[in-house]
Amino acid sequence: MSRSRRDIAWIPTFAVLVAFAVPWPLWGVDLTVAGLPVWIWWHVAWLGLCTVLFSLFVRSGAWERGMGRRPESGAGSALGGDRR
């Protein structure tokens, strides 16, 4: 139960990932860092973060649980012994 409750946290996480892929806090900022406007760096870093978190989402097994399925074992998922 606690596992699926923790899975709920992915919904706001995805919402934040989508919402702040646009660098809203830097609206109107015109600073240039390392050859590019700083808000472009925000976006680059953010998409990197997305890939990291997406891979966490997949590896934790939340990918299957989100569709009401059991993660297949052996797919690199850290299931632990608490499934039974």
Partner: peptide, 25 residues
């Protein structure tokens, strides 16, 4: 260059989420 932000957000993040929500289903 803001177009990069628009396309990156929609394609890289929002579409990826929909890839799961619509695509995987």
């Amino acid at each position: 260059p803001e177009w990069l932000i628009v396309m990156g957000t929609l394609d890289g993040v929002l579409f990826a989420v929909l890839w799961y929500v619509i695509g995987y289903k």
